[in-house]
Simulated assay, not measured.
Amino acid sequence: MRTNQEVQIRDPFIYVDRKESKYYLYGSTDRNIWGKGTSFDVWVGNDLKNWEGPYPVFRPEQDFYSEENFWAPEVHYYKGAYYMFATFLLKGSGFRGTATLKSNSLTGPFTPHSEGVVTPDDWFSLDGTLHIDDEGMPWMVFCHEWVQIGDGEICAVRLSEDLKEALDEPVTLFAASDAPWPTSFKHKTRNTQANYVTDGPYVYRAENDELLLLWASFVDNVYAQGISRSKTGKITGPWLHDEEPLFSSDGGHGMLFHDLHDQLHLTLHSPNKTPNERPVFIELDENNGSIRRRDDESKRNR
């Protein structure tokens, strides 16, 4: 058994199993997260404080198309099976992208499902997440990376019903600089113009039926988490952006979920420095589409 402070993980993703009253914590778990590393694990808990594991959920075959940058796995239940969306750096092309894997169990083993990545072959892309629209059609929302285009973008693409391939060209939802809260930076060797990061999109349907998009960027070189809102309620937007980030204390790549007691939570990793990153769970209050940290509300009422 391990506590949150003993679990090193980036990009945490929680699957709530309401039948078994358990939480499954997935994420980027390779210790050498920025280089060689070929594994995904899961931690299992009855609360959000203590975890058993880690249990291996994906170990690639020798001929798998990637051997580094195994990032940001998240697991969704869809049409009778569990699908993992995960990012990989491709051996042949050197580009990154998101692929789908499949299992009949939350503890795996997951096996490759898509034929390579679902994102464009000549893009640096990452952090794909599943969204099912009002017509029941699957989409993948993902990031077109700043390392290629400077001003990182959030994009969406329609998927085949079996989640194996993209049906259309991706649609750009917005660029990071469209939002008021991220700030730019200059990189010493790559894209030395003003760069803006987009990381870890997650789609959430609010209680008032508003469609929200949680995503990460940087504020004065500090990792942060913000929210955007679809004016039409559709994934294609257009999108409006909250003025201030939801979290700006060196943490990000988060997602939203309701726990076994129906309390809304934000989970993310913090701090944003290897090997110190840990899963953080923050209770939220939701009111007519407005999302606030409960601890912020308590401070206001003092």
Rank of each mutant, 00 (worst) to 15 (best):
M1S: 08
R2T: 04
N4D: 09
N4C: 10
E6D: 15
R10V: 02
F13G: 00
F13T: 03
Y15T: 05
K19M: 08
K22A: 10
Y24I: 09
L25S: 05
L25G: 02
T29H: 04
T29I: 04
W34L: 06
K36P: 12
G37K: 09
F40P: 01
F40S: 02
W43F: 14
G45F: 07
K49H: 08
N50M: 10
W51D: 09
V57Q: 01
R59E: 13
E61M: 09
Q62H: 07
D63R: 14
D63S: 15
F64T: 08
S66W: 04
E68D: 08
N69Y: 06
W71H: 07
P73R: 09
E74L: 01
Y77C: 07
M84A: 10
F88W: 10
K91T: 10
G92K: 14
R96N: 07
T98K: 14
T100E: 13
T100N: 12
L106K: 09
P109F: 10
V117I: 12
V117C: 09
W123A: 00
F124H: 15
S125V: 00
G128N: 12
G128P: 08
L130Q: 11
H131M: 05
H131D: 02
I132A: 07
E135R: 13
W139T: 06
V141D: 00
H144E: 01
E145M: 13
E145G: 11
W146I: 02
V147L: 00
D151H: 09
E153R: 15
I154D: 00
L159I: 04
L159G: 04
L159P: 05
L163R: 14
K164L: 13
D168T: 15
P170M: 13
P170A: 11
T172N: 07
A179P: 00
A179C: 04
F185D: 13
K186A: 14
K186L: 12
K188G: 07
R190K: 11
Y202I: 00
L213K: 00
A216L: 07
A216C: 13
S217R: 08
D220M: 10
V222N: 05
V222R: 03
Q225M: 15
I227C: 01
I227H: 01
S228W: 00
G233W: 06
T236E: 07
L240E: 12
H241F: 09
D242A: 10
D250R: 04
D250E: 14
G251M: 05
G252T: 04
L256F: 13
D259C: 13
D259R: 11
Q263R: 15
L264M: 12
H265L: 15
L266V: 15
L268F: 13
N272H: 13
K273I: 14
N276T: 08
N276M: 10
F281G: 05
L284A: 12
R292L: 12
E297D: 08
S298N: 02
S298C: 02
